[in-house]
């Protein structure tokens, strides 16, 4: 057993083990998602996160150590965002034809996301600082952190709320759209990009390529609109 402990202490300190663990956890999550026919609750991100968080807890590994390996995956978020130009380019004619619905749905979805969060938070008695933390929750993480900071919120807590919002959106979008009988992939995708940023966009790509392309546009436009909208919306509740 001593050998195992030595190997473990060596491996646990190297980025390789946590990078590999991240990929394995995701493969398990993705396999389960596929096995259930992409059932909304079998979200590969959610499954992988639960597996990895349990593993870190069992092995007593800090997040900082884990992230030394996981950062290589995390880094790709930037290039992947840039690569969203590709589905956008592939769908460029459909996007141009849907210009008016896109503008209308952006304004409606973005305003609803910010105002409803602030209104419910206000009704529950959240402090102004917590409201500022909450306001950008539907926005993609880097923008959300910036907005939260400039409004006097807590960026760390905003990051938590952003990720949770993404997961909630990715899980509820399919059953919700089916219940509302909205079958237009453009509408479904665009709405989930606006309401649930990248995690919603990732879900949309798994369901339908056109939904994915429209989700990417929704995410990008909502990031810019929320940056302009959030200070005004917060002012209504202070």
């Amino acid at each position: 057993m001593r050998e195992f402990a030595e190997i473990w202490s060596y491996l646990a300190a190297s980025p390789l083990i946590w990078l590999t663990a991240t990929l394995i956890a995701y493969v398990i999550g993705d396999t389960l998602a596929q096995a259930t026919g992409r059932a909304p609750l079998a979200n590969p991100v959610l499954i992988a996160v639960i597996l990895l968080a349990s593993l870190l807890w069992i092995t007593g590994t800090s997040y900082a150590t884990y992230f030394e390996g996981a950062q290589f995956v995390h880094f790709l978020l930037g290039p992947a965002t840039v690569a969203l130009a590709i589905p956008l380019w592939q769908q460029r004619h459909a996007v141009r034809r849907a210009f008016v619905p896109i503008c209308a749905a952006l304004l409606a979805g973005s305003v609803t996301a910010v105002l409803s969060a602030l209104a419910i938070g206000h009704a529950l008695g959240l402090s102004p600082q917590l409201l500022a933390t909450l306001a950008p929750k539907s926005t993609t993480a880097p923008v959300a952190l910036g907005i939260s900071q400039s409004l006097g919120g807590s960026p760390t807590l905003t990051a938590v709320l952003v990720i949770l919002t993404g997961m909630i959106g990715a899980i509820v979008v399919t059953p919700l759209m089916n219940a509302l009988r909205i079958r237009d992939w453009r509408a479904r995708g665009f709405a989930v990009g606006v309401a649930a940023h990248g995690i919603g966009t990732a879900r949309a790509f798994q369901v339908n390529p056109q939904a994915g392309a429209f989700a990417g546009i929704g995410m990008a436009l909502n990031a810019m609109l929320t940056a302009l909208l959030a200070p005004w919306a917060l002012g209504l509740f202070l």
Partner: peptide, 24 residues
């Protein structure tokens, strides 16, 4: 290449998601 990166867009959110658990 871009489609290759996007095919597993979900994977890229896993490290941030694990970070959230510690902050819950």
């Amino acid at each position: 290449t871009g489609e290759g990166i996007l095919r597993h867009l979900s994977l890229l959110f896993v490290p941030a998601g694990v970070g959230v658990v510690g902050h819950l």
